[in-house]
Design a protein around this nucleic acid. Structure first.
Lengths: 200, 200
DNA sequence: CGGCGTTTTGAGAGAGCTCAACATCGGTGG
DNA sequence: CCACCGATGTTGAGCTCTCTCAAAACGCCG
C-alpha cells in the first residue's frame, strides 16, 4: 500500500527529499536511523557486506516502495542502502511516523501489514538462497517475479545486477540462462525473460 | 515482547491451546489462517518444502515466541509449521487480534515492533544462507547466537537439527565443527559450543 | 541386551567459483 | 563519422567445496 494512503497528511508534509547518484549511499549499517524512506524515483538496494567482502543483497526497492521500516524501532540501521541507479528518496522523520501510529490505529495497522508483506518476501528470499542449483534458483526467481500473465518477467537493470540479487556469479547466471534457453524452458528478449509452458 | 504485555485481556481470554506431538503439523502452506500463535512449550519450526523435496527452515520458535504474525493479514499460510518437539501452542483468533489493534494503538505498535524484529532476523538468515562455506556459515551463526558472554552458544536440539537450520548436510556440519575445533576456533561441550578468542 | 537415531569418518562426483580471454554495446570526443 | 573506451555479456578451463552414498561407532531408552 502506498505511503500516502495511510500516513496522515501532517506526517506526509514533514518529509524531505534527497537526490542520489548511482552508487551513492543513502545510509550505512550502524548509522543512526532517520526515519521511513520512500523511493520516489530510481532503484535502491539494501545489502550487507560480509567480512570476505561479498555483498549480500537483501532487497531492491523501486518507486513507491518503502525501506527502513524496521529501523523505526531501532536506533541504528542494520544494513546498507545504496542507490543502484540515480534516485530520489523521500524520508519521513521517525518521530513523526511513530506519533502517527499512536494517534491513527489505521496507520499502525497498515504499517504492520506492510511489514508482514516484507516478512513474506524475505522468507521467499531465504528459500531462494537455500537452492544451490543455479538453474533452479533462477527458475524460482522467475516464477515468483512473473508478471500478470504468469510467464513474463521484466528485468530491472542488467543481468549482472540480477546475478548479484540472486547471489550467483554473473558467469553462472549467463551459463544457466543459456542452458535454460537451449532446453526451451525460457525465451529471452531484451529487458525480459519469458517462461516456457512446461510445468515439470 | 511477550504477547501478554501488549494484547488486551479480552484478546488473551479468547485464546485456545493445542498440544502437538513431535513431528506433528500445526498448519501447512495454503491452509486458511486461524490467528496469531504463541509457543507455550516445546519448539515449532517454520519451513517450506521445495519441489526437490528439501525442507528449508525459515524459523525455529521456542516458548514465548509468536509465529504466524504475517498471516494475520493474509487469508492463507505461506509456509508449514511443524512441531520439532512435543509442544503446546496457544492461538489467538485472527479477528480478535485485529480488533485489538483497531482499539489499542499501543497493541498495534507493539505488534509492528515484533514484525520489525522478524524482518531483521530474516535478513540475518538471508545473509547466512548467502555464505557458501560451511565453516563461515557456522561461525556466522555462532556469533549471532552467542549468549550474554558473547562466546557461548547453547544448542537447542541435536546437531542434526542445527545442520537443518543452517541449511547444511549433517556430514558437512560435523566435519566443519571438527575442523573448527582442531584449529582452536571453538570448543565443544555437551549442549553448547564456546567460541575461541581469536577475532580474525 | 537389542534397536534406533545421532555422531563420525571415508570416498567420489557434481556444480559453482575463480581467473582469464574475448565479444558486444553505448557513449564520448576528436 | 569514426576511433576509443569502459562496462556488460559470453565462453573456456581448472579448483575447491559441498552433497551424496556408504559404513561404522556411539549413546539412549525400552
Amino acid at each position: 500500500m502506498p505511503v500516502k494512503d495511510w500516513l496522515p497528511a501532517a506526517a506526509l508534509a514533514a518529509a524531505t527529499d534527497r537526490k542520489l547518484k548511482a552508487g551513492e549511499t543513502l545510509f550505512r549499517l550502524g548509522d543512526k536511523t532517520a526515519g521511513l524512506c520512500e523511493i520516489i524515483k530510481g532503484r535502491v538496494r539494501l545489502a550487507r557486506v560480509d567480512r570476505a567482502g561479498h555483498e549480500t543483497i537483501l532487497h531492491v526497492a523501486g518507486p513507491g516502495d518503502t525501506i527502513a521500516e524496521a529501523s523505526l524501532f531501532s536506533p541504528a540501521y542494520h544494513c546498507d542502502a545504496i542507490a543502484s541507479t540515480d534516485a530520489v528518496v523521500r524520508t519521513y522523520p521517525k518521530q513523526v511516523v511513530l506519533d502517527a501510529f499512536a494517534r491513527e490505529p489505521k496507520a499502525a495497522q497498515a504499517f504492520a501489514a506492510t511489514l508482514a508483506r516484507q516478512v513474506m518476501a524475505l522468507r521467499a528470499r531465504v528459500e531462494q538462497r537455500n537452492i544451490r542449483s543455479a538453474r533452479e534458483r533462477i527458475r524460482h526467481y522467475l516464477v515468483l517475479n512473473a508478471g500478470a500473465d504468469g510467464r513474463t518477467v521484466a528485468l530491472r537493470g542488467t543481468l549482472k545486477d540480477l546475478a548479484a540479487e540472486l547471489g550467483l556469479t554473473h558467469e553462472a547466471l549467463y551459463r544457466a540462462l543459456a542452458a535454460l534457453e537451449r532446453t526451451g524452458d525460457i525465451e529471452r528478449a531484451t529487458g525480459k525473460i519469458v517462461l516456457g509452458s512446461r510445468k515439470a
